[in-house]
């Protein structure tokens, strides 16, 4: 369980996060939604110690973030930011191997190789494992990065806009894989996501942010509501029930 308590982040005079408290529950997909500048990505970066906070606490499995040694935390929690701009010439398998760095410091053991193979299998990258990242499509590349995080074998996986630049087919594919990770392997996943319908269809818990504050949080029925979403995004929404899923229409 990750507890976020009264977190404040300030850039100059601007408060990007204002006294945010919430909980990321184990074994669930928690989605963070909200308009641009709501502070979703900032929150995720703070939880994963990529950027420092001004005040407040982040407690991961009972220990505050500051008390986690860097390389121990790397075995507990992983974060993937949007990284499609990477121009580095690396093979998929090499990238995935880096996921084992916290365990083996770059000197791969047999056990590491097993994890790497499993991750490649799981993300269906086995056949193309020797291709370079710059030869891949956006969806394949995203899968490669997720495979790396899988090889890292952490309980918590944080993803910042994993669907960015992906077409519908690949987006669905990634979300289904994330769902499986939670249902089959018992991972805990937190994602920042822009497409509310993906959040609605695939998450267990949604946290809605606006202007650095949590407006509301809860399960799908509680968050995917006409008035609440309208308030968050400042626009008209209508919600449709299709195949037991709640879909937002906002065009």
């Amino acid at each position: 369980m990750i507890e976020i308590r009264n977190v404040v982040k300030q850039y100059g005079d601007k408060r990007v996060l204002n006294d945010v408290s919430t909980i990321i529950d184990k074994g669930k997909i928690t989605s963070f939604i909200g308009p641009n500048g709501a502070g979703k990505s900032t929150l995720l970066s703070i939880v994963s110690r990529l950027i420092p906070k001004n005040s407040g606490e982040v407690i991961i499995d009972g220990k505050t973030l500051e008390n986690w040694p860097n390389n121990q935390l790397a075995k507990k929690l992983s974060i993937l930011k949007q990284s499609n701009h990477l121009s580095i010439k690396l093979k998929i398998r090499e990238l995935v191997s880096f996921g084992r760095f916290p365990y083996s410091n770059g000197y791969l053991t047999k056990e590491d190789e097993i994890y790497i193979d499993q991750a490649l299998d799981y993300m269906q990258l086995k056949d193309i494992q020797d291709m370079y990242l710059d030869q891949l499509s956006g969806g394949q590349r995203q899968r490669a990065f997720i495979a790396m995080v899988l090889a890292q074998n952490t309980d918590y996986i944080l993803l910042d806009e994993p669907l960015n630049n992906l077409d519908i087919k690949h987006s669905v594919e990634i979300m289904k894989m994330l769902r499986n990770l939670v249902d089959d392997l018992g991972k805990t996943i937190a994602i920042v996501i822009h497409d509310i319908n993906f959040a609605s269809c695939y998450s267990d818990h949604i946290v809605a942010l606006k202007d650095g504050k949590i407006v509301d949080e809860g399960d799908i029925d509680r968050i995917i509501r006409k008035d609440l979403l309208g308030e968050i995004y400042d626009m008209e929404f209508s919600i449709a029930d299709v195949n037991n899923m709640k879909l937002c229409v906002y065009y």
Partner: peptide, 21 residues
């Protein structure tokens, strides 16, 4: 340090995620 240089070359966030200083 070869491995560490490669990881550092993938950016600060990427390195931090893997617990690299």
């Amino acid at each position: 340090y070869a491995n560490k240089f490669t990881i550092a070359g993938m950016g600060q966030d990427f390195a931090a995620n893997l617990g690299l200083n």
